[in-house]
Design a protein around this nucleic acid. Structure first.
Lengths: 249, 249
DNA sequence: CCGTTCTGTTAGAGACTTCTAACAATGGAG
DNA sequence: CTCCATTGTTAGAAGTCTCTAACAGAACGG
């Protein structure tokens, strides 16, 4: 597998974009921004902000007279809005679609906002437009009659077909890796494990729609050896039985 | 609006993670990795790789004897797989769900993979599991009878209810910002513009489900002033008429 | 008016990644 | 075996962002 590397782009550095974003929000909130507040909002020292402001000012993003109030230029506002819009879009994706808490969603968005390309953003917006015409989709993945959050882990037990967790409840005849024989292969459909166990399986590369081949099936407590994405992995029985598969290529 | 900043994490730097990922793939492909190949794959000079290898070796991620073949330790493999899995998951999201080309999706994934939290990844996987049980959803957003790609811009004209672009075609009675009177407000449902015009509107913060207030409606060629997300924006008529809204809070 | 306190700036340093240029080791070809 | 080409390493420098420590300017109370 070749990794496609991002083509280098001549734009602003991430920290500087963060300063613009912060200033934009402070100005919106208080009408002005001050070094101390920017520092507090970004979690850095005032000295660092001072230096950043000089750079932003030289680059024409900030109107900045030493020791006076700080404002954004036209260009600065545009750049800030650009980043902030990405922030909001990503936040909404992680909270409204995936069901993360607003705070966690915003943190996650903060880490990703600088790198979201125009195209990806365009298509995400289109996806939101689409979901707007299909409210049942988000509802199905998301709200459950019990009121628990989208993507939550435990089945809610209402057995509603509108509830993702119910419709995701393992089918009676679902096969897990644990029941596969050496030489067999399957395609992952669901990982039923939760918590650290789930995370471990995911980190190993066991994702929905990936192919797994069983190489050696240890009896009893022995580990099960599988191949997945070209890697050879050892699974314990508890892990293996939480990976559901369907027969497949 | 408060921006939630990511809590600082004590893990590896992004460039070092990239080296691990690259080495992992090279080892999988050729059975070994060499400085020159790593440098080529990452687009840096050999000298830089040499220094990175020393660090990775000291940190216990790489088995590395000067001028000998390079391999990953157990820890190194785990870390590499962790990143690579995120890469693959994000790539699939951007290509399979949003319809980007595999190459663009992989590039985008590369920029985001290091910052995806465990929780977000967990929920994205859950979302994939869910979509696996609802193939019609992705199909509806994605494949169209004409075979054009998901998220594509032009309506395909088949008027199939299974085609997102058809079902997204502006309803007869859809209202655009351009027809709103000063004082009215609405909630954005769709941006019909394409290309640079669309990108401009998005970057200004005009996203689906955001509220817009019309402040001054210029006659004829004059700009229309709106408020959106706390910002005061001027739209030309062509821009305004491509933002569809529904009456709303 | 003077001193204290708050705010912002500068200087100097460290961590990180990358580069170029020069050097060292390895491996074949003759 | 020797020479040359390839491959990898080191030294030195630049650019980024950050910090601490020391300083300067402003504001306010007494």
């Amino acid at each position: 597998m070749e990794l496609a590397r991002p083509t280098p782009k001549a734009s602003m550095s991430e920290p500087l974009e963060d300063y613009l974003e912060t200033i934009y929000l402070l100005v919106q909130e208080h009408g002005f921004a001050r070094v101390k507040e920017i520092a507090k909002a970004r979690g850095v020292k005032a000295a660092t902000v001072s230096i950043a402001l000089r750079k932003l000012s030289e680059a024409g993003f900030v109107n900045y007279v030493r020791r006076e109030y700080i404002g954004l230029t036209e260009r600065g506002e545009e750049a800030a809005r650009r980043v902030l819009t990405r922030h909001r879009l990503l936040t909404r994706f992680f909270s409204e679609v995936l069901g993360m808490s607003p705070h966690a969603a915003s943190e996650q968005a903060c880490s990703l906002e600088h790198a979201l390309t125009d195209e990806a953003m365009d298509r995400m917006v289109r996806f939101f437009e689409f979901l707007g015409t299909r409210p049942s989709v988000v509802a199905a993945f998301g709200q459950c009659p019990t009121g628990s959050r989208p993507g939550d882990v435990e089945p809610c037990g209402t057995a509603s077909p509108d509830c993702a967790r119910c419709s995701l409840a393992p089918k009676e005849k679902a096969m897990s890796i644990a029941t596969m024989k050496p030489g067999q292969s399957g395609v992952v459909t669901q990982i039923t494990a939760t918590g650290a166990l789930r995370q471990r399986l995911l980190d190993m590369g066991i994702l929905p729609e990936t192919k797994v081949d069983v190489e050696r099936s240890g009896p009893g407590g022995h580990p099960l050896w599988i191949r997945c994405q070209g890697a050879r992995l050892a699974l314990r029985r508890a892990e293996a039985s939480s990976v559901l598969v369907r027969a497949g290529a």
